[in-house]
Structures are given as C-alpha cells and as structure tokens.
C-alpha cells in the first residue's frame, strides 16, 4: 500500500468479464446458439416460400412435385424429354472435355514455359491462344464453333453433331484457363529443384517430366478441380446448339406444361453431379492447408 509501485493498482479488482453477448456463446450455449440460428434461417426460407404474396404461385410454378416427376422420367406422349436422360449427355460431354482439356492445356502450359529456341513460334501462338480464349465470352465461342465450323467445309470437322461442336468449344475455352493454372503450378516449383536436376545431367525434357511436372501439378490440383466444377455446369450451354441435354430437356418440359418445375429438377440433378466434386475439392484444399501448417512449425 505504501510502496510507489502500487500507485497505479486499482482500489477494486479490475473488471475482466467479456460482454454478455459473447458470454452466452460459450460452452453448451454455443451449441444452442448454432442450432437456433440454423433453425431461424430455415424458417425464414420457408416463410418466404409460404407466406409471401406470390408464394403459392411460385411453389406451383417451380416446385410442383407432379411436373418434377414428369420431367425426371420424361413424357413421350407430350414429346417431353427426360431431364435424367439429358444429364447423361451433360456427363459424357463433361468427361470427354475433361480429358481433352487436361492434355491440351498441359501442352500449352509446357510450350509457354519452355525455353527452347525451336519452340519460339509455338510460344507466341500459345500466348495468343490463351489471350483470345480467355477474353471471348464462352457463349460467343460456342456459337462461332457450332455455326462456323460447318460452313468451312473442312471435311469431317464440318459434318459433326452439335454435341461434338459443343465439346470443341468447351475444350478451346477451358484449355486456355487450365493452361494458366498449370503454368502457375509449374512456376511454383523452387528454382533449386531445377538446378539440382540439371546438375545431375538430366536434360531439359527429363527435368520437366521427372522433377517440375510432378511437383507443379500436385500443387494445382484443387484449382484444377475448381475449373472442372464450372466445366460441369457449362456443359448446359451445349443446349444453345440444339443439343438435347438436361437444360434443353427441361426447357421443352417447361414449354409443354407451362410449368417450370422441370428447370428445378434439372438444377437438382446438377447439384447431385457437382456437390461430390466440390466436397472433394474442399477436402483436398483442407489437407493441403494442414500439410503446409505442419511444415511451418
């Protein structure tokens, strides 16, 4: 009490409690809080669907189980295609394009970071290519490919089905994006790795193939998957060329019944297709983060 060091000490014990708003979120209260906030949000969505002035119309027009079922299974009597049958088209377009993009984009990225004088014109070409196809809206690319290629009279290239043109357009556009993702990955490999490989007498090609590529691609797997999720969805744009995939089928159903529940069904099918992939991507990102945190210790 008499010491000078005690001069600043408060007479009463200091007030060290958190504000009550944060106190109620602790321990078991935290669980209650998260449950009740979730319930509140679900209630809000239900309230919008059921109590808004247009709620009934909306539910009838978009969430009608009868028409959703008809769309799912198809209705040959009314010439309505099944959206489930349609999504099969989306899936094969996606799978084909995925493989083509993975290979083609890697080739472009490889050419772009190569240093060989022999590849100089290809380097320029690859740069121009990525600039063009990242810069043009995909809807224009698909029209130009789908309606343009047949005009060219290029033998078999001009006599394909619309689905094939959609694949070509998707591959052209997505390769430009994915090539940049690859390139970022290849550039992220530390320079010491290249020095070590070249010092062992590995050629430029062997260095790329055995050292840079395996490391570079591994780091960009999550962003690559991200691009493939959007590729899955963009297969819907094949409908612009008249391909009867799920969205086109849903449009036909909508026009036939004057009811848009088929569109909702189609959206649900897309979710079934994309959600596993998004979850898997998140899982990989999380694993990668944990690995990097462990490495930082």
């Amino acid at each position: 009490m008499s010491s000078e060091n005690d001069a600043d000490a408060p007479d009463t014990p200091p007030f060290l409690f958190a504000p009550w708003r944060r106190q109620i979120l602790r321990g078991r209260n935290g669980l209650i809080a998260s449950v009740s906030s979730s319930v509140a949000i679900v209630m809000a969505v239900i309230a919008i669907l059921f109590w808004t002035p247009g709620g009934t119309t909306f539910r009838f027009y978009f969430l009608n189980p009868h028409f959703m079922w008809l769309a799912l299974r198809g209705d040959p009597a009314h010439a309505v295609n099944s959206v489930l049958g349609g999504i099969v088209t989306n899936i094969w377009i996606f799978l084909l394009c995925e493989v083509l993009v993975l290979v083609f984009a890697l080739l472009i990225a490889w050419v772009r970071i190569s240093v060989s004088p022999l590849l100089f014109p290809f380097r320029i070409l690859a740069t121009v290519y990525t600039d063009i196809f990242r810069g043009i809206p995909f809807i224009l690319v698909i029209y130009m490919v789908g309606f343009g290629l047949p005009f060219l009279g290029l033998g078999f290239l001009s006599t394909q089905s619309p689905a094939v043109y959609a694949c070509i357009a998707l591959t052209l556009t997505y390769s430009a994006y994915v090539a940049e993702v690859y390139r970022a990955g290849l550039h992220s490999v530390p320079h010491g790795q290249i020095l070590a490989a070249r010092s062992l007498g590995l050629t430029q090609y062997a260095t790329m193939r055995r050292v840079i590529l395996p490391q570079g691609v591994r780091t960009v797997i999550p962003p690559l998957l991200n691009d493939f999720i959007s590729l899955q969805k963009d297969t819907a744009l094949a409908s612009l060329l008249g391909v009867i995939e799920t969205v086109r089928a849903a449009q036909i159903g909508t026009d036939s019944y004057f009811n848009a529940s088929a569109l909702t069904m189609s959206a649900l099918l897309f979710l079934v297709m994309t959600i596993p992939m998004t979850r898997f991507t998140d899982h990989l990102i999380e694993k990668d983060r944990e690995k990097r945190l462990a490495g930082a210790q």
């Binding site: 790795q193 020095l195 070590a196 070249r198 010092s199 062992l200 007498g201 490391q215 591994r218």
Partner: peptide, 21 residues
C-alpha cells in the same frame, strides 16, 4: 553438351535440393 559435362561433376547445394516428391 552441358548435360554430358554435368554428368561428370556431382554438385551438392547448401539447401540440399532433394526432390520432395
């Protein structure tokens, strides 16, 4: 050919530069 030259010279770096994969 530099690649052939380097096969006769082993090089070891300050930062090891082992291939992590």
């Amino acid at each position: 050919d530099p690649d052939l030259v380097r096969r006769h010279m082993g090089t070891v770096f300050q930062s090891f530069n082992l291939f992590p994969h």
